[in-house]
Write a protein that binds this DNA or RNA. Structure first.
Lengths: 266, 266
DNA sequence: AGGAAAAGTTGACGCGCGTCAACCAGCGCG
DNA sequence: CGCGCTGGTTGACGCGCGTCAACTTTTCCT
């Protein structure tokens, strides 16, 4: 299905199609150091197997877990992608994260023993399911496991701080530019193309994530495309001018339209 | 100086003035379980003293730490209050937290060994400074310390998720109402009055925190006051109608103005 | 295959809130 | 005691973006 999207895209945009994110090797997984820590003891396999319960497959739209549900497992994404979101009593939803292969979900529920948010697969997604209980047991003997968990959680906190900055202080263009660049960098980290990739999120999801309306997302995409900074075909995106986009994302006072020719402040 | 503010306020608003937040007892400190965990070993005092380096006083506006600085210490607030904020390269600032007595600052820098944000005292503030390095050493032998750190960090994550919801999905009235109610609840937890307290933040800070303009904060305060739901005198606030404010903060579709008399939905 | 539902796009319109500006009120300082 | 400064308040104005709506394209389901 992702295949199909890519084929279609490559008809219109005649550039080498990129493979969607395949499964990460354990070595490239963000949880690797956690798993490695588990493996450090002599009885490597038995420990690992007690903790990494099993590998599961979720289809597009399926729930990995719900908020306030007992947080019995954490999930490491092997391939595919997932979104996390929180809800108000009023039923409003705020997407708080887009998670790519090698990333860990559900750890924030650690203390309350309940998930703090819900997680949903954005496409067919393969995950490692890790028992929180067993993880804790093993951690008794291996402090490095706790350190890894702390490391991962503080990464999550940094992510939220960046998102807060985006939601509180930026206009629609900056939000979308920053979103795309952030994705680009993450793809690069994972050894994928930083300029050609599939957003696994719909326009509506992106808008929700960035705190703007779905229609505004469309309009900004169109504007960027008219300027020649990127091309998109539904969820497939190609970034043509990373520098320009970076300028949009960062510069506080610059007006994008005027910068094209009139004011040669460059 | 907080004293003075209160005295002034009580002239205009003839209600029993409330004491500003005094120092919390160790027993009421959010870090108590951390300190307690340290104390569980036989050589209680020596351990505690190696780790809790010293108590410090910061004056209004003074920095506890800066982002990207080596994260050598975490700070537990004993009295007063502090704000944390992150910055863009462009120089924009987003306040990410308001911290009251009993709360812990600087833990998110754990993995990168650098603070992820900066922290600044909002008033004269007394803190316990805890050496990260020593904490780690002690944690080698006491897994419960790591568990406490995880607990505190996941609390931070939940806070950010709520803030994201606020910034992404709510209008100015809802943001301010939710902000005030959140504070109210936190004061109640700390055994202070949930209806009469000092915001240690300026209007500008509140606006920044909530992602709205300073002037909008003023206007919404004025509107709420006209409706009789609260009174404010500079940074001193009294909440008169928690229910009404809760309705504003939660209900997605309700219009505040109309609800006063016309629609008796109550 | 075929029809319905979902996702995406574009236009029109108006309101919420940001911005600019003037002004006021405490508070610290000399 | 008065002066200046910082923080707070209020008004006017306009633009960015949310909302509603019509329409197209793609995907999903039977």
């Amino acid at each position: 299905m992702t295949e199909a999207t890519l084929k279609r895209a490559s008809v219109v945009v005649p550039l080498a199609p990129v493979r969607a994110c395949g499964a990460v090797a354990c070595r490239d997984c963000g949880v690797y150091r956690l798993c490695a820590a588990l493996g450090l003891e002599g009885d490597e396999l038995s420990l690992l197997e007690r903790v990494v319960k099993r590998k599961l497959i979720f289809k597009r739209g399926e729930l990995l877990f719900r908020a306030r549900e007992p947080a019995d497992y954490v999930y490491a994404i092997r391939s595919g992608s997932a979104k996390t979101c929180v809800r108000t009593e009023g039923g409003r939803v705020q997407i708080t994260g887009l998670h790519l292969p090698g990333e860990l979900l559900g750890l924030a529920g650690f203390d309350s023993r309940e998930y703090t948010c819900e997680a949903r697969a954005l496409e067919t997604t393969s995950v490692c399911q890790v028992s929180m209980h067993q993880l804790e047991e093993v951690a008794e003997r291996l402090p490095s496991i706790h350190r890894e968990m702390l490391r991962i959680m503080s990464g999550q906190i940094r992510h939220y701080e960046q998102l807060l900055l985006l939601l509180g202080k930026h206009n629609a263009e900056r939000r979308l530019a920053a979103f795309l660049l952030g994705l680009s960098q993450r793809f690069a980290l994972h050894h994928y193309s930083p300029t050609q990739f599939n957003l696994s999120m719909s326009r509506g999801d992106i808008g929700n994530y960035l705190g703007i309306a779905e229609e505004t997302v469309c309009r900004v995409f169109t504007r960027f495309q008219e300027e020649g900074w990127l091309t998109t075909r539904r969820r497939y995106v190609e970034l043509h001018d990373l520098e320009r986009l970076t300028a949009i994302a960062h510069d506080p006072g610059r007006r994008a339209a005027a910068a094209t020719a009139l004011t040669s402040v460059a």
